[in-house]
Design a protein around this nucleic acid. Structure first.
Lengths: 146, 146
DNA sequence: CATTGACCTTGCCATCGTGGGAAGGTGCAG
DNA sequence: CTGCACCTTCCCACGATGGCAAGGTCAATG
């Protein structure tokens, strides 16, 4: 008397509190496309499947997906998120490790921000000197031309 | 009596003030790879060739490459540079058009800068609350976990 | 004149995160 | 039973750049 099939039907799986990929996507804000991508990249474990091959997700999977989503919102790369996930599930982690990752990423952001600000500053300076009328003379082009 | 072959030899071309791709790269700071890429993307015209198939560049080509390089340094995309180049070579351009492009790009940069600053701010705030020691408890991970 | 090393050619692959679309199977409601 | 919404896999695209491989060319040296 088997009460739980190895590969259940979808309806059966739903009764057990599992979600298919569309529901998981709606519940986490991660597109189905990206959920599959994260699986193939190893950020989330291989999803279990219904008999017909549909992926199934439990609440722990949704939790993991939300973790990934929040990390992406902070600009972490998939590689960095892989490390964060490993730390998250490692009960013997040192918080210094997490802090190091976060600060390194913050520093990298600062670097890029600085570069982009320099570009922006230059662009605005050049724009200030350009009349922006119907005439062709333009300090912006002059500068780009060297 | 033909003084200028349709497809000269390299030495002959050099005498006429032309450069091969390596020289053009060294003179402009654009890698040979990217010079070819810009050609295939239409940012620069198809280079003339020696009899053996080597690309040849004149000073005007170097000028154009430097224009592209400076534009890239300001963060313009290849598509935007295409537009800038068209304006550059259009003697009837309105400088307002150039100014509009530059300001739009500056605004886009500002947008991205703002997003990245928000990320950075959050990361630094979270880091401040993390002791960063050997213990596993970590507000950063707690936040990512939701 | 032959060899050699530096350089050129084209073409394909990789990055990184995301989306689009095609072709075919599944689930459910009317 | 039919139709629609959803699922599956697989391939392609973006943007800008680099790497590598296989093969041809040039110039200097022996």
């Amino acid at each position: 008397m088997v009460t739980k099939a190895l590969r259940p039907e979808l309806a059966e799986a739903r009764q057990q509190g599992l979600y298919n990929i569309g529901e998981a996507s709606a519940a986490t804000g991660v597109s189905a496309k990206m959920i599959r991508h994260y699986e193939s990249a190893g950020l989330i474990p291989q999803a279990s499947r219904t008999f017909a091959g549909y992926r199934l997700y439990a609440d722990t999977d949704l939790h993991r997906l939300r973790f990934i989503k929040r990390s992406r919102n902070l600009g972490f790369s998939m590689k960095q998120i892989e490390a964060l996930l490993a730390l998250w599930s490692n009960k013997h982690r040192a918080s210094s490790e997490v802090k190091r990752l976060a600060q390194a990423h913050a520093a990298a952001l600062g670097e890029k921000i600085g570069e982009m600000q320099a570009m922006q500053r230059t662009l605005l300076e050049l724009s200030q000197h350009c009349r922006g009328n119907q005439r062709p003379d333009c300090p912006i082009l002059d500068d780009l031309a060297g």
